[in-house]
Design a protein around this nucleic acid. Structure first.
Length: 792
DNA sequence: GCCGGCTGCTTACCA
DNA sequence: ACTGGTAAGCAGCCGGCC
DNA sequence: ACAATTAAGTGTTCAGAA
């Protein structure tokens, strides 16, 4: 007798039993259970439908030597663009038969490289963390009745962990060097080790094997749904696995006797823990750094914890760990270790809501989402909805096609050249979600693109036509995301900011934003299934058209248009209401979802000229002050890390003097004082450090540069420098070229006054002072021994 | 031999 | 590892000028 | 208990863990 049940859908995998394929669903109701659903893998063939039965005769040899044949064949109908197409649907006994059988077919095959579990999620239209209602008999689900969004998110049990290893030779060697500590933080926290410690949170066990086995027990006791680590997919878990094998220790971090396995998803390594979600924060932090959600130059636990939580790791050098262990520093090491586990836990709790929303929005189980790139998120969501709309999923490009795409970049946005100067009363208007709104409003999609002719269509500035007859896949999905987000945003305003519901909804809003902002990039991404040059070109072309139209109309309405970049216009206004009226007028003329918004009013702003003689304005560099005194600075040296603090601080003070006080005398005084201080030689070296990251291995550069020269000096002293190392250097007095003079901050003893005056402070401030009428001086400043001092 | 101007390589920023 | 547009540093080269 | 070891491809890396 079938029982009807409800539970949260957490994750899925699959098993083959007695030659039949079952999807294994991880469900969370009162308890967490694993249940099975009979489902056959399949793929589609664009071949002779009337002779479909013949495909059953295919015999394909698999890598393991076995012979695989299709088990069933039927006809399928799918949309391709606006047309319907008949295809052959070939069912296989198990997932690994698919590639083998496909390779025997002399016709184009589709949807054969979609991982089986994803396929199942598409076909059943499941969403992670939604509630499914199902009928079960024993361990088997007979029927999925419904999939619904829950009122409340499932309560996730979480645990973080971190290991310390004995490392006398630098990097620990799995075969020889033991795990000396495991720290964890969940409902309880503690450190497992096999030496005595006075710390009350330390549990001292007999040996390494006992530590590993006790860790397994703790996981079983805490029974977490999610296990956090930091780079645990590349270090902690493989290391523990290797040590457990060597010591014959039972390491059972999974549920239902599930083991662990490593996997690669593109460039990202994952380590799967059966029955639980292994959440490695490191790749997730990289992803959030990439999309600009967090601002970080390094992705070490220490740097990220500082940036996100405002907390640091304890100060123990990795190289010293084995010495602490050997020389009675167990307490100190335990303190260090537990802080790592706590920071990892805090980071995990911080980002879990967002990742869960990413998971249910993109329809990718949580573990997979933590390993996904933007392209994969968008692609998966599009495939999910393509399945829903019965559209054929395009194949992924291979080989030459990718290079062709890479070699044909698409023209991007328009940036208006600003007239340098200092201005008052600036209004900034911008298009809300410009590219997404263009895609939706003009129905831009590879499937709605009309080859030729076509009456009822949007015609892009490039000449491409998009039908108005049927809404395309990309616009439909994007429209849904954008719409959902605006509803959530208005709901958020009425909610209690400290409530759990607010945290969840806020995370969802974020997830929706991340996804919708990736769609345009995905259309122009070389490895995209839905790549379309005409689509991507049309998006930017319409973007340029709208921004230029707006500029033109603003000028016609009597505004001076100062500047514009991609989706924003900067106007000089007299009456705020005139700006609002203008904006409303534009909005009346805009199609569909497009909307111009008021970003803000600024009382004063500085636009500078580019370096070099002529007075051409610099793009992407400006500073403005709002009514309430807040300053907005873009592109200036002072927002860049590869300029010294002395130059950046001076530039900021000069800008503040001008924007806040309108005092050019004060600005000049600041510069003079700074130069005097530099000449006195009293400026601390830290304020002179220039920070640059080496993006390549130091041996792989073709050129000389100050940062590279400083890096070489570090290497000489035995300080490790590798790709990604951030170099802080000071330009000293010894040497002919700037590169020769560059010395790593920690080794610096003096500084080159002339360099800091002429190459740091003056370039940073003269661009601004020039707009105050001091431009004739800047011409002479290039000469020898001249400092600003001599001119005032 | 000195310089200005240019290019190439590089980093970091804006949208 | 989603897109393109932009400033600006330093090194190194070329050509013009004295 | 058994048997197999799990459907993606590019190029063959990045940077993090000790």
């Amino acid at each position: 007798m079938a029982k009807r049940r409800r539970a949260y859908f957490m994750d899925a995998s699959y098993v083959v039993k007695k030659g039949r394929t079952y999807v294994a669903l991880l469900l969370k109701g009162k308890k967490v259970v694993k249940l099975y659903y009979r489902y056959d893998p399949y793929f589609l063939v664009d071949g002779p439908v009337e002779r479909k039965e013949e495909f059953l005769d295919i015999q394909a040899q698999k890598k393991n030597g076995r012979i695989a044949s299709p088990i069933h064949v039927e006809e399928a109908e799918k949309y391709v663009g606006l047309e319907k197409k008949k295809l052959i649907k070939l069912y296989c006994r198990e997932p690994s038969d698919v590639p083998a059988i496909k390779s025997q077919i002399p016709f184009p095959c589709f949807e054969s490289s979609i991982p089986f579990v994803r396929r199942f999620i598409f076909d059943m239209q499941l969403s992670p963390f939604h509630v499914i209602t199902y009928e079960r008999e024993g361990r088997e689900i007979k029927k999925i009745i419904s999939v619904k969004e829950p009122k409340e998110a499932p309560q996730m049990e979480t645990l973080s962990f971190d290991i310390e290893t004995y490392n006398p030779m630098g990097a620990p060697r799995e075969k020889k060097d033991p795990v000396i500590m495991i720290s964890y933080r969940g409902r309880n926290k503690g450190v497992l080790t096999y030496k005595e410690s006075s710390r009350e949170f330390v549990e001292s066990l007999e040996n390494e094997k006992a530590v590993i086995e006790r860790f397994s027990e703790i996981i079983a006791e805490e029974n977490p749904d999610v296990i956090y680590g930091y780079n645990s997919a590349n270090f902690d878990l493989p290391y523990l696995d290797a040590r457990a094998k060597k010591l014959n220790a039972r390491l059972m971090p999974g549920r239902f006797k599930g083991g662990m396995r490593s996997l690669r998803k593109g460039m990202i390594n994952g380590y799967e823990i059966g029955g639980r979600v292994h959440f490695d924060l490191y790749p997730v932090m990289r992803f959030f750094g990439f999309i600009g959600l967090i601002k970080a130059q390094k992705f070490t636990l220490d740097a990220i914890a500082e940036e996100v939580l405002g907390k640091r790791k304890l100060d123990v050098k990795k190289e010293d760990i084995y010495q602490l262990w050997d020389q009675g520093g167990v307490d100190q090491l335990a303190d260090y270790s537990i802080v790592d586990a706590e920071l990892t836990y805090d980071l995990g709790e911080n980002f879990l809501p967002l990742e869960m929303e990413m998971s249910s929005t993109a329809k990718i189980p949580l573990f997979q989402v933590t390993l996904s790139t933007s392209g994969q998120l968008v692609e998966n969501l599009l495939m999910y909805h393509a399945a829903e709309r019965k559209e054929l999923i395009p194949r992924r490009p291979v080989g030459e096609a990718i290079y062709e795409r890479l070699n044909a970049p698409i023209q991007g946005a328009f940036v208006k050249l600003p007239e340098p100067g200092i201005y008052e009363n600036i209004a900034v208007l911008d298009f809300r979600g410009l590219y997404p709104s263009i895609i939706v409003s003009y129905n831009i999609d590879p499937g709605t693109l009309l080859e030729d002719g076509g009456e009822n269509a949007y015609v892009s500035p490039t000449g491409a036509k998009f039908t108005k007859e049927k809404q395309g896949l990309v616009p439909v999905v994007l429209d849904y995301l954008v719409d959902m987000r605006s509803k959530i945003k208005s709901r958020l305003k009425t909610m209690d900011r400290s409530s759990a519901a607010y945290v969840k909804m806020n995370a969802r809003s974020h997830a929706l934003k991340i996804l919708s902002n990736s769609f345009y990039g995905y259309l122009g991404y070389a490895r995209s299934r839905y790549y379309s040059r005409p689509c991507a070109e049309s998006v930017t072309a319409w973007g340029r058209k709208h921004i230029m139209d707006t500029i033109q109309k603003a000028e016609k309405a009597g505004f001076q248009v100062l500047y514009a970049d991609t989706d924003s216009v900067f106007l000089i206004y007299e009456e705020k209401n005139q700006v609002r009226d203008f904006m409303n007028g534009i909005n009346d003329s805009l199609p569909g979802k497009m909307e111009l918004e008021l970003e803000g009013f600024y009382t004063r702003g500085v636009f500078v000229s580019k370096k070099g003689g002529e007075a051409r304005g610099a793009k992407k560099k400006y500073a403005m002050i709002e009514d309430d005194g807040r300053i907005k600075i873009r592109g200036f040296e002072l927002v860049r890390r590869d300029w010294s603090d002395i130059a950046k601080d001076t530039q900021l003070k000069v800008l503040e003097a001008i924007l806040k006080e309108g005092s050019k005398q004060k600005a000049v005084r600041i510069v003079r004082e700074t130069i005097k201080e530099l000449e006195k030689g009293t400026v601390p070296l830290e304020k002179l450090a220039i920070i640059t990251q080496l993006k390549k291995d130091p041996t792989r550069y073709e050129i000389k540069s100050p940062e590279l020269s400083a890096a070489k000096k570090m290497l000489k002293r035995g300080i490790p420098v590798e790709r990604g190392t951030i170099i802080s250097y000071v330009v000293g007095r010894k040497g002919a070229s700037i590169s020769e003079k560059a010395v790593p901050l920690e080794l610096a003893e003096d500084y080159d006054v002339e360099y800091y005056v002429n190459n740091q402070v003056l370039p940073a401030v003269m661009k601004i002072l020039k707009e105050l009428g001091y431009d004739e001086y800047s011409m002479k400043v290039g000469g020898k021994q001249k400092s600003l001092d001599s001119f005032f």
